[in-house]
Nucleic acid binder design. Sequence first.
DNA 1: CCGATTCTTGGGAGCGCTCTCAATAGACTC
DNA 2: GAGTCTATTGAGAGCGCTCCCAAGAATCGG
Lengths: 382, 382
Amino acid sequence: MSQHQPTGDGPPAAPSGGAPARGGSHPGPGPAGRGDTAGALPRPTLESVAERAGVSRATASRVVNGGAGVRASLREKVQRAVDELGYVPNLAARTLVTRRNQAVAVVVSEPESRLFSDPFFAKHLRGISRELSAADNQMVLLLIEDQADFERVGRYLGGGHVDGALLFSLHHSDPLPDIARRVGLPFVIGGRPGWPGAESDRELTYVDSDNRGGGRIAVQHLQSLGRTRIATITGPLDQTSSVDRLDGYRDLLPDGDPDLIAEGDFTPDGGGRAMAELLARRPDLDAVFAASDSMASGALRVLREAGRRVPEDVAVVGFDDVEQIAAWTDPPLTTVRQDIEDMGRLMARLLLRRLTGQVDTTGRRGPTSVITPTRLVVRGSA
Amino acid sequence: MSQHQPTGDGPPAAPSGGAPARGGSHPGPGPAGRGDTAGALPRPTLESVAERAGVSRATASRVVNGGAGVRASLREKVQRAVDELGYVPNLAARTLVTRRNQAVAVVVSEPESRLFSDPFFAKHLRGISRELSAADNQMVLLLIEDQADFERVGRYLGGGHVDGALLFSLHHSDPLPDIARRVGLPFVIGGRPGWPGAESDRELTYVDSDNRGGGRIAVQHLQSLGRTRIATITGPLDQTSSVDRLDGYRDLLPDGDPDLIAEGDFTPDGGGRAMAELLARRPDLDAVFAASDSMASGALRVLREAGRRVPEDVAVVGFDDVEQIAAWTDPPLTTVRQDIEDMGRLMARLLLRRLTGQVDTTGRRGPTSVITPTRLVVRGSA
DNA sequence: CCGATTCTTGGGAGCGCTCTCAATAGACTC
DNA sequence: GAGTCTATTGAGAGCGCTCCCAAGAATCGG
């Protein structure tokens, strides 16, 4: 059956409408919601909690925020009042004075990117969400579609609505890092930034997977299989991930034939085209390292149409390990796996650390960039 | 951002700290960013804008919020001050008094759902984002992974941090709708809710694609091809979308053989297994309607392994039209397309309308649920 | 040319919460 | 037992903004 998925049958879970949270003493006045047209029942304030507990607002505040320096007896009283009233701090009010929003923005430029086609996006988000919610931070998602959006997002980032930002899929011309820097908003970038100078900019923190190492692993595997005419289908070379993977390939094949390198575009289509090209240039190739599973799937199809058997005649290795693709090609794809979710989690963690690290925007001691490992997943294609 | 901004030179700059203002004229290194450890340059307040414009805070506020009832000359003055200072309203302060957050939550329960595997998720989000940002609303993403998260999210929704919520992938036991209702938070559900009574609940607003109609379209197409022994691979029958698609199938095959129906789980794997089962039960079947492209891809593979040609021997129709899958199976999949992005947009629009519709929580006149159309995309498999 | 209206403004009171600072109550030293 | 130090607690001042209300300016009929 579907792996986990407690599917169908038994609705065992049913933790009963268990008045989640807030219910406190009143497990929910039953049907509440419906009847009362009120709708806008005034939410309890710290003031009311304090009053009910018979203490001052200040003390109530202390308890709500950790309760350090408050006698146990009082602390308990306040806690009870909080529960009974179902008190929830008003974030806006708190933010107004603390200047902390307990929220970070996740900005994704150009939704056309792969971030959107593969499950990448969801995975990244999931990793980020995990880390963020553990620290009780919210995630505000900002998608950029066109030039005009940059302004909107820039304004938002500069508006002090979030404590930091996670920036994805940046291009050289992307103004976001500059904007963030200008307004002093801490941020972490997803993927190695590619603009000039980025590399040496010590203040730029990014998280990327070990693309180069992954490229090496792929080629290494192919070589260990005895293949000697190893070709590669790269991604768009204006993206650092593509370049890095190609560099990995070159690391092991320093003086390889340029004819064994073709540029794709991360789509199955592009992969197929590149494969055809390679086949035309070097009919004798016996292996291919495609810089993405999507491209690999396209290559696989072209190889089949060309009458080449995989892996007998041509061994194929992909990159990403997108289950949806890799596990379902024919034959299943051997590929380089990168843990997207972990990258997301790492990004969030880095940002959070910088945030709690006493706001020293100097970025001096801040943790620097991180490269997450990649590893080979052997299936049938190589 | 810097668009207008005659800044820099302006001799009037004087007004105390007024100068710096978020960079503007100094595009590059300037003072801001790097050197100064400050980082926390005090953002201009309405007060400072008013002062610079020589008006009261109240008037400045009016201008910032539309400027109705303010003489043109003054309005202009204030506007200029805003630009020069690079003033951006402090949302927290505004929220504190208006009780509007200009933000809605997007809640996704159980990330295991398909929402995460296919590009569904991203598409939904994109649609939502489009609509929301057009109305200048932010999107706060809340992912629920385990039971404990329900509490966290419930507390958040009840915390008055968002003006409304978009709820996804709900199960019967899902407490979210109840929580939202209890705290009087407007919400719209993604997908037809399946719990008992949901159907008749006039207050429940949801957006779903026409799954039933889609099922009909699929079968109709198969019939028009002359197929008479049409099987179907359903999704998990505890999900309304699966049930609806199956109902569509049944609409056209009211007295079909139960042996022609097998339950899958929306994964390629499950689709393959269901296909094998069907083949065993009715070796003579000549068509299959799979309730998802993923399952169709699995079915395709099993059919191939069983030596059946597609579409010659067995015609196959999928559902969803996930490009990544449908366009790359062999042969390309004929499938029922649903416009996910549009669904997202619709959900957001519905919620927004309810929000601006003068907060009448009575939901009386509120726009009710919407079903978005599906249509057939013919490729090679049928 | 004056009182009545209608517009425009500015004053000021909070929204709910945090935080500094001073006051009070114990605890402890000698 | 007096003096000093420390752990608790409460009062009060805002954070930045919206909005009610009344004061002042402009308009208008008679």
